[in-house]
Amino acid sequence: MSGRGKSPSQVHHQPVRERQGVTKAQIILVAGTTVVAAFLLIVLNSTQLRQAGGGAFSYPIGITQSGHPYKGPPEAPLKMELYSDFLCGHCAEFASVLEAISTDYIQKGKLQLIFHNFAFLTPESVQAAQASLCALDQGPAYFWRYHDLLYTSRAGGMAAYSNVRLKAYAQELGMDTEAFNRCLDTHAKAGQVQADLYAGIQAGVEGTPTWFLNGQKHVGFMSEDKLRNLLDSMLSQ
């Protein structure tokens, strides 16, 4: 920074020559560094998000032989078959309870969660269910991220499940949007969503969320504490 950093008292034998300030080169250096830093951060962030979309989970995830997505190892002592509608409020709350217990039960191999669409509330439910299966086509990791995003977007109201938005979520998660949009637009999953609904009715599901824990039927939301107690009591049996 040459002699410009000197205080006026040190140079006051020659005050007229000493201007305080920054040079153009310093400004260009700061601006250039900032632009490069911003660019790197944005690129890093985008790639990280892209990887997160289909990236690794800390527990096994996959698709059952019947075509339903699961999390947690298939050999887990507890198996939960969950029937849910993406537009159902209690389902969203229950999904966040399941997320909260996942570290202690799913990650530790005690619980396997199997998801079944039970799209019965509104036409948007059916759309969202189809979209979730289109996401599943790109891998179970995408399904679970998409599932989480659908539930957290409920605050946006019905508009959050419009065709445009359903596609936007896929794009946000870094999916192959062309394949996803084609799947959604052609209603490729309409049959499966319908079949899942009938299968649920056959199994005795009348509303959502309904879940079968090792075959035992439970209807509705359960608080985190109660669910932990239930799981623990079943594990100790």
Partner: peptide, 25 residues
């Protein structure tokens, strides 16, 4: 002091530039 003032102003410029780039993104 006056000799630091220029660098503080440069800091304001740098941070607001970073802010503008992120806002644009």
């Amino acid at each position: 002091s006056e000799n630091l003032e220029a660098y503080v102003t440069l800091g304001v410029f740098g941070i607001s530039l970073l802010g503008v780039l992120f806002s644009a993104y």
